[in-house]
Simulated assay, not measured.
Amino acid sequence: MYIAPLVTIVLVTLISGIFSKSVELTFELPDSAVECFYQEIEQNTSASLEYQVITGGQYDVDVKVEGPNKQIIYQQQKMQYDSHQFTAQHTGVYKVCFSNEFSTFSHKLVYMELNVGPEQPLPGIGEHATVLTQLETSADEIHSALNRIIDHQTHHRLREAQGRKAAEYLNERVFWWSMCETVAIVCVAFAQVMVLKNFFSDRPTLYNKM
């Protein structure tokens, strides 16, 4: 797996045996930029891509999955999140590209998960020659449930990150608006004091001149 330098913030790679590969990462996508990731996939191997824009602009990004023969497997424009499953028709290096070229000033923070191959079963269960025992069945069910919990936790963390960024942005806008209001109130108060001071200042009268 080759990853463009200086863009990866969090990278977690899990390799189970030689059949299943899972790459989960969060990276920054600058404005007017394109970042591509490469993964070698064997023929007739299933793969799935899931992504979501966490922060930046309108939370949208262009996505393209390209095969080793330059064929377009998946392509979407200005998507906030999506998932796509496909089966490799040829052995080779597959390319996943995220584009932010349509944005001239908004940086994006993008989450991506790429799973290649079937999920590896628990040790001792995948090649079980006889019927599973009750303990093995329970262990397999717990394993599946834990995987679903991990997926749910990931999505909750992404939504939490979006909510936190939105709250921080709103807090910053409220802060600067409050500062502008404070400055305006101080200026108005100063102007009122100067006007009242002019009303009560000593002025020469006609009697004093005589």
Results as ranks from 00 to 15, higher is better:
1 M>Q: 02
5 P>Q: 08
5 P>K: 11
6 L>C: 09
7 V>H: 15
8 T>V: 15
9 I>K: 14
10 V>E: 08
10 V>D: 14
10 V>M: 10
11 L>E: 09
13 T>Y: 05
13 T>A: 08
16 S>K: 15
19 F>I: 09
21 K>M: 03
22 S>C: 11
28 E>F: 06
28 E>V: 10
28 E>D: 07
30 P>Q: 06
30 P>A: 05
31 D>P: 02
32 S>L: 09
34 V>T: 15
35 E>Q: 15
37 F>Y: 14
37 F>I: 06
40 E>W: 04
42 E>D: 13
42 E>M: 10
42 E>P: 09
42 E>C: 08
44 N>Y: 04
46 S>F: 03
47 A>E: 02
47 A>F: 08
48 S>D: 03
48 S>C: 01
48 S>F: 01
49 L>Q: 02
49 L>W: 04
49 L>C: 09
50 E>L: 02
51 Y>Q: 01
53 V>P: 01
54 I>W: 03
58 Q>V: 05
59 Y>W: 07
59 Y>L: 12
63 V>C: 01
65 V>D: 02
66 E>Y: 00
68 P>M: 02
68 P>K: 01
70 K>N: 14
71 Q>M: 06
73 I>V: 12
73 I>K: 07
83 S>D: 06
86 F>R: 14
86 F>V: 05
87 T>I: 13
89 Q>K: 09
91 T>S: 15
93 V>H: 05
94 Y>G: 01
96 V>G: 01
108 K>I: 00
112 M>P: 05
114 L>N: 03
116 V>A: 08
116 V>M: 12
116 V>S: 08
117 G>A: 11
118 P>E: 12
120 Q>Y: 04
121 P>E: 09
125 I>T: 15
126 G>R: 04
130 T>P: 00
132 L>P: 08
134 Q>L: 08
135 L>D: 12
137 T>N: 03
137 T>I: 00
137 T>P: 00
137 T>K: 12
138 S>F: 05
138 S>P: 00
139 A>W: 01
139 A>F: 03
141 E>S: 14
146 L>F: 05
146 L>W: 04
149 I>C: 11
151 D>V: 11
152 H>L: 13
152 H>R: 12
155 H>Q: 15
156 H>I: 10
157 R>T: 03
159 R>N: 05
159 R>D: 01
162 Q>E: 13
163 G>A: 14
163 G>N: 15
164 R>M: 03
165 K>A: 15
165 K>E: 12
166 A>L: 13
168 E>P: 01
172 E>C: 07
174 V>S: 13
174 V>Q: 13
174 V>K: 14
176 W>R: 13
177 W>S: 12
177 W>K: 10
181 E>K: 12
184 A>S: 13
188 V>W: 06
188 V>A: 08
190 F>M: 14
190 F>K: 14
190 F>S: 15
191 A>H: 06
191 A>L: 08
193 V>P: 00
194 M>K: 15
197 K>I: 01
198 N>S: 13
199 F>D: 08
203 R>W: 07
203 R>L: 07
204 P>H: 13
206 L>C: 09
